[in-house]
Amino acid sequence: MSVLRIEDLCTHYFLGEDQVQAVDNVTFDIAESEIFGLAGESGCGKTTAAYSIMRILPENGAIVNGRIFLDDEDVVVKTEEEMRQLRWRKVSIVFQYAMNAFNPVLRIGNQIVEVMLEKQSIDKEEATKKAKELFDEVGLEPERIRDYPHEFSGGMRQRAIIAQALAAEPRLIIADEPVTALDVIVQNKILGLLKSLQKKYQLAVLLITHDLSVVAENSDRVGIMYAGNLVEVGTTVNVFKESLHPYTYKLIGAFPSVKGPKRRLEFIPGTPPDLIRPPSGCRFHPRCPWAQDICNLEVPEYREYEKNHWVACHFAGEINFEVEP
């Protein structure tokens, strides 16, 4: 059964008279014990989707359509008070800048204990004991719960943030660019930790990143977003090895590899569109080498092209990506 199910999500930002269609008709789900990688370039709406799930959108942002189910509870219709009950307990979020995620004048341990006291019916002593166990579990020395954030390195802070995210035993963890600011060796250690905890606690993880290499190595299924739309979803191997959407193919091809022969890197001419007035039809059509008349006229349906492999492209499966017209 799915822990998270998103149906036709539309989230807009209101700028005076204008509306930025940051997330438009996004549908996907994440099962228990599954890591779902949500990837795309800056401005594609991946973080807005995450903030919609947590209901922590900025003041000018709103979910204008769609439903978000966390274990069959619809998040969209919850009051703010009901959301407070869900956050940390059902779903918690790990942000990119671990540097700023902790209050610099409070001890890290206390900030984790605070979450437990707020969200669980335990006393302070028990919470402190549990915080120490969590520290041990994420690979930090338990005594260091008395340290302040500045005494931790970037990697250690990221571990502490993960400990905090686990504090109230959530079902879903949203990791928004969790390793982007870290060096590769530390990056791998953090991702390895996330994966081992995910297995141990059967967590559902929404891994949001711009780095397709990180997605390739760390997720079970992948969703690719472009200009507010989810353009392709499938198992990681299918999406990478049998891409259906031209954007997916081009984006993956733009990522260099240190292994294997040096191949030609792809690039996509032009820039992502303005989401106040997105292009008609398929939002990718102005940059797509294989676009035809229909792509300008009709929005492609998001459909299951083959089992568990979804795509929104009029010509899915018909394009030979090796040849550009």
């Binding site: 590769v184 060796i185 390739a216 190595e217 191997v237 090895k241 292994k259």
Partner: peptide
Amino acid sequence: HIPIPDPT
């Protein structure tokens, strides 16, 4: 440790 864009 450098990630590569190939899941296989």
